[in-house]
């Protein structure tokens, strides 16, 4: 379980997170939604120890996210950011191999190779595995990075807006993949999403943030509701039931 207690964070004079507390149970896909500047990405970065918090603590299965050895945490939690520009010129397989670093310390043994093979197969990258990353399309590259986190074999997986820059087909495939990962591999997935309809259709749980605080948590059915969304986004958003799913219609 990821336990977030009284996290505060400010950049200069702007308070980005104000006393955020949240328990994320194991299993399933949790979507983190909210208006721009709500503090979603900052919260994710603090959980993944990419940024320090000003106050409060985060513990992951009892390990303090900012005190425990980074190497131990790397076997427990993986994070994928939206911007994955690399200077190093790597093949897909080399990149996925880096996911084994927390386990192998860089010298890949047979077990590591097997884990890499599984990740390659899982994301259907066999054809591409010896290509260089800069020879791939955006969607393929994204898959390669997901494969790296799969090879890392962590219990928790955090993703910051993974649908950015993806077209409809690839966005949908990515969301299906995340659900599949959580079901097949038993991972706990926490994903920041901008499109609440994706959250509504694919998440087991939604956490809504606003102005640096947790605004509401619940099932998609509880959160994707006109009265909640109106307060969250400060604009009226009609919600329709389509094939048993809640769809917010905010395009008019």
């Amino acid at each position: 379980m990821i336990r977030i207690q009284n996290i505060t964070k400010s950049f200069g004079r702007t308070q980005v997170l104000q006393d955020v507390s949240l328990d994320l149970p194991e299993g399933g896909v949790t979507a983190l939604i909210g208006p721009n500047g709500a503090g979603k990405s900052t919260l994710l970065s603090i959980i993944a120890r990419l940024a320090p918090a000003d106050g409060g603590r985060v513990s992951i299965d009892g390990l303090d996210a900012h005190q425990a050895p980074s190497a131990d945490l790397a076997r427990l939690i993986a994070m994928l950011r939206q911007d994955n520009h690399l200077t190093a010129r790597l093949t897909v397989r080399e990149l996925i191999g880096f996911g084994r670093f927390p386990h192998s310390g860089g010298r890949l043994n047979a077990a590591d190779q097997a884990a890499i093979d599984r990740a390659v197969a899982y994301l259907d990258l066999a054809e591409l595995q010896h290509r260089f990353l800069d020879q791939l399309s955006g969607g393929q590259r994204q898959r390669a990075f997901v494969a790296m986190t799969i090879a890392q074999e962590t219990k928790y997986l955090l993703l910051d807006e993974p649908l950015n820059n993806l077209d409809m087909k690839h966005a949908r495939a990515m969301m299906r993949l995340l659900r599949q990962i959580s079901q097949d591999l038993g991972k706990t997935v926490l994903v920041v999403l901008h499109d609440i309809n994706f959250a509504s259709c694919h998440a087991d749980r939604i956490v809504a943030m606003k102005d640096g605080r947790i605004f509401a948590t619940g099932t998609p059915r509880q959160i994707v509701a006109p009265e909640v969304l109106a307060d969250l986004y400060e604009t009226d958003i009609p919600v329709h039931d389509i094939d048993g799913r809640r769809i917010a219609a905010f395009y008019d």
Binding site: A48, R49, L50, P69, S70, A71, D72, L73, A74, R75, A78, M79, R81, N84, L86, T87, A88, F98, G99, F101, P102, G105, G106, R107, Q152
Partner: peptide, 22 residues
């Protein structure tokens, strides 16, 4: 340290994610 340097070259976020004490 050569393998660790390879990880470091991937940048801070990936490096931390892979368990480096950056």
């Amino acid at each position: 340290r050569l393998p660790r340097l390879d990880v470091m070259a991937l940048g801070r976020p990936v490096g931390i994610n892979l368990g480096l004490d950056w």
